[in-house]
Nucleic acid binder design. Structure first.
Lengths: 205, 205
DNA sequence: GCCCGATGTATACACTGCGCACATTAGGAG
DNA sequence: CTCCTAATGTGCGCAGTGTATACATCGGGC
């Protein structure tokens, strides 16, 4: 179904299309559904065509992880920008957990295997995201940093995300209640005094 | 290599042997290495023999997870028993992280996929372990509970374990330094005043 | 002594990752 | 315009996997 019909032999941008297809497969089911053949099928291309752009399956998964880290970073940046002073730790935490819940398979893929030895791109993308997390907010004009995130902030929030993904957090799977739980836990553990109502969430679905 | 030689046709306890073989494969490499055929090979048995005891691969993995939760529970109980008063949160946390680092593939398997809908045994085993975590210590004779673990304790420690497994914790991969980092983080976030020297660890290798 | 259910084997099929040779195309040199 | 070359995609094949089905073998009850 390719060479004799009018279908173009060259795809144009198969590399990007493979990423898209793999992401779709991830969202639709889970990592097990991401096979190079399924990706090729979805791109309307021969089973081995993706190998021209990704040397092996690990490379495709690594590219997916990189994409995820970029997206997570953007989400965190978007969440921290309009945050009211003093609510930054909560907004960031909620955005982090939201991202995990919105992209469960991708989030698991990003943190599943040790990334150190292989694929430096993944490590780099992860570190760039981590920089957003560990950075203190810039000065807000008064000259003093808006808020400092304690050293345990990331482990706490990452644990909340992982356990929420695993379904082991109380309050079932409702997003609003998980939002509230994240807010309560983070404020309690990080000692932010301002506690007014439910967090506003971060705009992500 | 089976029916005509003197080798016994029936294995005796293949169910347990499959579990052992699968655990060995997990420790030697990772979850990807656990195939039913490899398990059967290692048990010296036909490729399809395990299906007599586990209806499909998921069932085997679920049994592995159950085993892991039991083992983790025992480890936590062992760690909490000889703990000095006021050091319980730290000892438990270190034991939890140690278990993750000692059995990386199994730990990931235990928390990889949402366990709610399928395999109630896994959920039950996980909840029994969770009970050890969330329970307050019994009275120590004086009538007052030794220590209360705050609500965010588990997410924090689970996050520490996950990130340590992922290689994203500072201090490289050295166990002693991770021990100290866990101790520092947990005491800082959970507000336990007693801070004397490095934690003793929990006796696990 | 004989039969039956439990246990393990044999065979088969679809699917996967991946290596190899080949076909097709785009784009520049003449 | 023609031809050559490298990038890109196809076809085919191999080994390994999960799983279904039919068959062989064993141990315990009548």
């Amino acid at each position: 179904m390719s060479t004799s019909s009018g279908v173009r032999y060259h795809h144009g941008d198969l590399r990007a299309e493979c990423l898209r297809a793999a992401l779709d497969l991830l969202e639709e089911s889970d990592e097990a559904a991401v096979s190079l053949r399924a990706v090729a099928r979805r791109a309307g291309v021969s089973p081995n065509a993706p190998y021209r752009h990704y040397p092996d399956k690990e490379a495709l998964l690594a590219a997916l992880a990189v994409h995820g880290f970029h997206e997570l970073r953007a989400t965190l940046l978007a969440a921290v920008e309009p945050a009211a002073a003093g609510q930054e730790v909560v907004s960031l935490a909620q955005a982090y957990v939201h991202y995990a819940l919105d992209h469960p398979a991708l989030f698991r893929l990003m943190f599943s295997r040790p990334c150190s030895p292989d694929h430096p791109e993944v490590t780099a993308a992860g570190d760039r995201t981590l920089a957003v997390i560990s950075a203190r907010a810039g000065t807000d004009g008064t000259g003093e940093p808006q808020e400092a995130r304690p050293a345990g902030w990331w482990p706490l929030v990452h644990g909340l995300a992982s356990l929420a993904l695993h379904g082991k957090l109380p309050r079932g799977g409702d997003v609003r209640q998980i939002d509230e739980l994240v807010k309560d836990t983070v404020t309690a553990m990080c000692g932010t005094g301002t506690g007014t109502g439910t967090g506003t969430g971060t705009g992500r679905s």
